[in-house]
């Protein structure tokens, strides 16, 4: 586990003090977090703990606020209220310099990879190394090939992102996310749009890399079956609130209506099929009088 970023100022020290978590216990702690875009509420009263070395999934329907949670952990958004602590630091209170220092210990896999399209696969993975280290070129080459080997794409080092399939792009992005041996890796919909083989490969890579590198992983996804195979704990988010949580075994055995609807893929239930609207009959016959 990496050492938490050293505070660069007294404000950063205050940020640590404001964090109510024990930095040795949890990698990430969200306490009663609420967030809104202007007046539109996205999250309300989110409290969750992500222990070190574990894989935690945040599941929920599209638009339920899952990705917003990742952005709050990464400091790209600031909560309206509540605390976001990562590695003992209060993320919303960090100054830009300290936030960037903390982010150097993060890796993030974006939904569609977010590879730099003007760089080759090799250059994409070398990018964070070149930006943040003074390593000699020979060492960077070896490290990049090692990361690519870990995701099974050493032979694709010379390809451009446009030449990769969706699954390959996701694996390259994963190699880039672990380029600097981060303490925390965040995955934003890592299984979206993948064929079954790629899906299985990505799932296994997340588990293997997490265990081999002793990192902490947060997986935002709506893929129930793949997640239940690899994660240690799950949070279910609906309409900006945590509606259920538990280990994969607890989730399998759960009789909670939301969890059942989510696992069974039922079209109607706590998550309604119809968007709120006036009564059907009233709207159809509104002109009849």
């Amino acid at each position: 586990m990496s050492i938490p970023a050293k505070p660069s100022s007294s404000r950063a020290a205050e940020a640590i003090a404001a964090c109510r978590v024990d930095p040795t216990a949890a990698a990430v702690e969200l306490t009663d977090v609420s967030f809104a875009y202007d007046v539109r509420p996205i999250l309300s009263g989110i409290t969750m703990t992500i222990p070190r070395g574990k894989i935690v999934a945040i599941m929920g329907a599209s638009g339920s606020g899952k990705t917003t949670i990742l952005r709050l952990i990464g400091g790209q958004l600031r909560p309206k209220s509540g605390g976001v602590c990562v590695g003992g630091l209060s993320v919303p209170d960090l100054e830009p310099e300290a936030l960037y220092a903390l982010r150097r210990k993060f890796g993030m896999l974006f939904q569609f990879g977010a590879l730099f399209t003007d760089m080759s696969v090799f250059e994409n993975i070398a990018f964070p190394m070149r930006e943040h280290t003074e390593l000699p070129e020979e060492l960077i080459r070896d490290l990049v090939l090692m990361k690519l080997h870990a995701v099974g794409l050493r032979g694709a080092a010379h390809l451009m992102p446009a030449e990769l399939s969706g699954g390959m792009a996701r694996r390259v992005a994963l190699a880039r996310a672990i380029a600097l041996d981060p303490m925390l890796v965040m995955y934003d919909e890592p299984f979206a749009g993948l064929d079954p083989i790629s899906l299985g490969v990505i799932g296994q890579l997340i588990r293997r890399l997490n265990d081999a590198l002793s990192i902490t992983s947060v997986v935002v996804t709506h893929d129930v079956y793949e997640s239940l195979k690899i994660v240690d704990y799950l949070y279910f988010v609906s309409e900006g609130r945590i509606v259920a949580a538990g280990t994969p075994e607890e989730v399998h055995a759960s009789s909670d209506l939301f969890v059942r609807q989510f696992i069974d893929g039922a079209p109607d239930g706590p998550v309604a099929f119809h968007y709120p609207a006036p009564a059907y009959r009233e709207e159809l016959f509104a002109d009849v009088g």
Partner: peptide, 18 residues
């Protein structure tokens, strides 16, 4: 749009500078 700028920010690289 393709989140390359967001990815850069998350890698602690300021897109304004890079």
């Amino acid at each position: 749009t393709t989140e390359q700028l967001a990815a850069m920010e998350m890698m602690a690289v300021d897109p304004l500078a890079r």
